[in-house]
Design a protein around this nucleic acid. Structure first.
Lengths: 339, 339
DNA sequence: TGTTAGCAGTTAAACGTAAAGAGTGCTAAC
DNA sequence: GTTAGCACTCTTTACGTTTAACTGCTAACA
């Protein structure tokens, strides 16, 4: 069933009002503040129908209305009017990225920070590792008797956290030979290609089996986001929402948000080409069924800058959050274009 | 004034009881459960004196007694009877360190994790960077046109997160010459020595000024713990304490605990040779005046393994926490002795 | 002199009741 | 289709009462 314009307007008013006050919205407050042309009785009957349709709930027979998850969805997709950020807020974003746009880790951290600052919600971010990066250089560097540090340089990334196990008896010269071999084979290929050839490398260069296995495992673990830099900011801000007064709810929220794996999978799941991704309540997986998650994936100059999001109560200020995420994306793009 | 044995016993009972129940302790419950030989009236007069002495408080005229910060201090230093961990708990600790005792980062993470698991409090840890480590190898590795990745190997650590800026026009060969020079000068010296010679290096090898400056800055920043791995586990566990029901208190706690700098300074401040360090309430700095912090610094085989701690309410189970911290220290020491 | 029984006094917590206030839904009239 | 008006529901607040858990004090006792 299609909603009449008036129903849409009323629904929008209810959601807006509830988002800003956290109080059930009454028919009288609607007519007083936003619809002086009709009486509260009229609005009342509209509200009853909207409730019938599943967009509104009541807490008890004589209470005002509260939006349902469905209402938030409609609101976020259709009803809300995006607001523009103030020039002050835009300046905050720009200042955030004045330095260090070359360092992806720093970009992730700063992005998450500024999003949390401007929205006043808990924010998350991580840079998903991309299998299309072409290898520019590989360096194996003896660290301990039977351990080497592996460095892989691509255009946008430096993998520098992987250790691989090598045979004790392998001489430094041999390691260098292996290193040269790996370079000869890997440089110019992207990670996906390398993995697809993995088996044939292992077969052909059986002498350096340990090395190849090590490097390939390292790439796999990298692509698997095993040590992906997951960044979190303002987890305590969930306490600004009156709906989070229950210790168990807070604990659950903090547990989820502090689990690196969980956050990484939440963000990875929502990293798409669609600009802004809004998941409300039950759209999310079990552990954050009572939350909304708004995410955006940023790219600039072909470089994947990562996926970022805001997590908070259903009663989230979607307008604000979407505006902030959009603006941050634009600023980032502009910054990196100039480079 | 010295406390009589009976006063000490009563104080100990009050603290023990309050720690386990979070309820004010009455004279009757003391005689019923722990002192059947005297009447509640007797205990009552003792309690009144302990209150007079500043060890106990009342919430209102007719309420039971609650320990003051002073009482906790006396309790932790003198009165409490340390408990032994169960063999199950010891096994948990041992299992934690079965693998990866070679990797300091992993040790820090696992240590913090097991402490939080066994105590059920929020736990913190970090490995303070030590200026007495002798350099074994330095590697400069060209990363970008004007950037090199610096690797410094010492016996116990690998510094691998420092980038230094180099002149664009510097050829790879020159970088290698510089690298060899740095090795010749630095290998075998510890960080403190290197820093003390810094000025003379800069003067003598003016051609490689950029490189020397970069390396020295990197060492300074390393010793300064700029990027020290601060690890946190179970921040949500503070919510298990009924005294943390107020949203503002929780927010404040989370803000402190999630600030890397703050945690690092708290732990650095408490890293001493004393085995276990207990700071209660007002002993701590302003922002955690309402918390207690119990820390321990671990060493094994001459290697500094870092400082670890538990942060929680004044009404903390000091017995348990101290036992866990001690046991973890012992297990770590044993593990690393065998290596 | 230390200990104790007993009792008066205090307070929080629990309970019931009443009244006020904010809503809704329904109906009859426009 | 809209509205005024009213009955009804439910929450919130307030208030008085009771109960139970304590303490502090006092007078008697060993």
């Amino acid at each position: 069933m299609k909603l009449s314009d008036r129903k849409k307007k009323i629904l929008q008013i209810v959601v807006d009002d509830y988002i800003s006050t956290a109080q059930p919205v009454s028919s009288k407050s609607i007519t007083d503040k936003h619809m002086k042309d009709v009486s509260s009785a009229t609005v009342r009957s509209e509200l009853a129908q909207l409730e019938e349709l599943g967009f509104l709930d009541k807490q008890h027979t004589s209470s005002g209305r509260v939006p349902s998850a469905e209402a938030y969805k409609l609101y976020a997709n259709e009803l809300m009017k995006k607001s523009k950020l103030s020039s002050k807020e835009l300046a905050v974003i720009k200042n955030t990225f004045l330095n260090e746009v070359n360092n992806l880790e720093a970009v992730v951290k700063n992005t998450v920070k500024v999003i949390s600052e401007l929205t006043d919600y808990t924010s998350l971010g991580f840079a998903k590792h991309d299998e299309e990066e072409k290898v520019q250089k590989v360096n194996l560097f003896r660290y301990k008797e039977n351990q080497a540090l592996l460095l892989i340089v691509t255009e946008n990334t430096l993998i520098k956290d992987k250790f691989i196990t090598i045979p004790k008896e392998m001489a430094d010269e041999q390691l260098e030979v292996a290193n040269n071999l790996v370079n000869r084979l890997f440089v110019g290929k992207d990670f996906a290609e390398i993995l697809s050839y993995a088996d044939s490398f292992l077969e052909e260069f059986n002498d350096y089996r340990d090395i190849f296995t090590g490097v390939i495992k390292a790439i796999e673990s990298y692509l698997n986001n095993d040590n992906a830099e997951v960044v979190l900011e303002g987890e305590e801000k969930i306490l600004n929402s009156p709906e989070y007064e229950d210790a168990n709810k807070i604990k659950n929220f903090l547990s989820v948000v502090n689990s690196k794996d969980k956050v990484a999978s939440l963000l990875a799941e929502n990293s798409s080409n669609i600009e802004i991704n809004i998941k409300i309540g039950g759209d999310n997986e079990e552990s954050i069924k009572e939350c909304s998650l708004v995410t955006a994936s940023y790219k600039a100059g072909g470089v994947n800058l990562g996926t970022y999001g805001v997590i908070g109560p259903l009663r989230m200020d979607y307008k604000k959050v979407v505006s902030v995420l959009e603006s941050v994306g634009k600023v980032l793009e502009d910054m990196l274009k100039d480079k």
